[in-house]
Design a binder for these strands. Structure first.
Lengths: 198, 198, 198, 198
DNA sequence: CATGAATGAGAATTCATTCAT
DNA sequence: AATGAATGAATTCTCATTCAT
């Protein structure tokens, strides 16, 4: 195997990342097993080290990729409409990513909750562009009078991300029973914008 | 004599549970180290096995205790006032528990985010009474017209717990920068009841 | 097993060091096998890590002990006689140590020839007192006119150690055929002091 | 065409041997890395196996070549003069080889000190002609009364080789500080022929 | 009850070697 | 001939658990 490599190698790398994401999502970093990941990807255990120098690096790459994919959801977000519509579009896009990349998203969220000093910076770094978009949308909303102006947009953005995350966690924790992925976007908006009070 | 002995034993057990909570909170289940926990509690490695049959069981006991303590926060909650006031009292009590039992709470939340089939049932089971109180308060609020009636109180309760949890996570994740524990109760209420919209 | 430990533990440690020396002597650092050493000492592989934190440390301890033992040979060296007699006594003592601690000496010499940056300093450090004695003896000899004064005693000491080492190497290399341990001391003296010329 | 090809092949083989020598000299057999050797020689890992069947064989070839080169130093040694002069010429030639082929010489000496049953015979076998020349010179010296006759020339030859080797080791061990390559030949002769006594 | 030495299953990692291209 | 992806045996090290004292 040589020469025609580069594409093939990239494919193998993707296969490994895919399986690694699935295993990290299911088992967490410590319980995930390098050997099992390799086998699941159709390789022997040594092969993984032709692509990643260590379990940590592999995890970091999965995380990086998860962040990257999560961020792309904002790429085509509409600009013209109301803040509610724009947020709705963002959440809809986000849930689509979740559907397609569930293991990666799960790793991301699971790890974000772990408070581990070696992974937290990775997440923060990669989530920054994501938050920036959100902040911009919310700041626009504040100017337009659609969003309450008693908090800085940066804090509002964190609350929004937190709300979304919490709903994902409940989705996973309930085994998909409630909320379902279908109702999740509307629920997120209502929870964040309207509150439960009358 | 028997009583003194068993009291002493209970004290030792508590010491072990405290230290175990601290370690599990800081390191997570897999990275926590039985030896370190024993040492920190002033015992040798082997002694832990006079109190708990395995690391898993120790963890389960920590979790159980965390749930039990968390639930006690509702014991003396006021009954007469508005839903907002009652929720405020609940959150205040909760944050007090958090302050005093931070490691236990951290273990609880951390584990709740892990979706692990062997620990999730424990959490759900122990959180049930906690949720019941909340559901009752919210149901009252719906009847009184203080809470929107477009969702079942059980779902509202989950949303409320989720909101609170998310704020704790951001508190820990930010190293206590935002939100602070002082502003957290008011923030939780505002977020849950009022929403960010105008 | 507890309480009466300390002596027993020291015994176990010695057993491990003894076997480690034998294995390092025979196989060298890289080919020596932690598992085999433990087994040979009558332990399971994990046990070695109750005594030494790593293979490197174990090796360092073996080396340190080899140096310590080697140096003791000079403890009772006679002071009154001629330089030749004093050197003879030193060599005789040295060969005695070799006989009793062959694996340790072999590790020492083998490693000294390996020029490895992580072990060379250990050897140099531990050999210093050893060289100091030698330098003192030779300096005395120079003053007494028994030793040529065209080289600093420090260099002469290195030449002497080198000569001795070289004879040990030939002893081991020849499988004990030539020189034998019996004739080695006299041979060392004659080689170092008299030379091969007429 | 065949010849050009085989010449090219021979060149590649030489390149590999040179790099292998450098790596074995620096890192020792076990720590030397097939991949690094190949890369350093401008090839990929696999290519080495077109020239040598295994790491062991490669090492054996390096050793063989080191011996072969070491032996050539005696080819043009002068015959007419005194033993001292002839030895001086031999050592001078030897040091020249050392200068030019340092890695090979280092491998040779390093390995000779290792007492390994699979490599020792190779060394002995290849050093035989080398020793024969030396024995002849020394035997002549004994007859001429220049060399003491209380030891067989074969033993004297071993002592001489040992003295030289020891000085090389000290040269490398001291990082070239003492002895320097310039003073080494004279030092070897003085040490071997004259001794340190008066 | 407490101790801590001993255990050994399990996991990550290395690297010489193979072989399809 | 050259390549380099794939392999898997081998090795070090960790740590929960046991048990004799």
């Amino acid at each position: 195997m040589a020469r025609i490599t580069s594409e093939a190698k990239e494919t193998s790398r993707q296969r490994l990342l895919e399986e690694a994401a699935a295993h990290f999502a299911r088992d967490g970093f410590d319980r995930a097993n390098i050997n099992s990941i390799a086998i699941a990807a159709g390789f022997a255990k040594g092969t993984i080290y032709n692509y990643f120098t260590s379990k940590e690096e592999l995890f970091g790459e999965v995380l990086t990729m998860a962040c990257r994919r999560a961020v792309t959801r904002y790429a085509g977000s509409p600009h013209g409409n109301s803040v509610r519509d724009r947020l709705a579009a963002l959440v809809a896009a986000d849930v689509d990513v979740l559907r397609e990349q569930e293991p990666f998203m799960k790793v991301l969220i699971r790890e974000a909750m772990g408070f581990r000093p070696d992974t937290y910076p990775i997440i923060v770094e990669h989530l920054a562009p994501f938050l920036d978009v959100l902040i911009e949308v919310l700041a626009t909303g504040v100017e337009a009078g659609e969003i309450r102006n008693d908090r800085p947009p940066a804090q509002l953005a964190l609350l929004f991300v937190g709300t979304l995350t919490m709903l994902y966690v409940q989705y996973w924790g309930s085994g998909g029973a409630w909320p379902t992925l279908e109702e999740l976007p509307e629920l997120a908006l209502a929870t964040f914008l309207d509150g439960a009070g009358t």
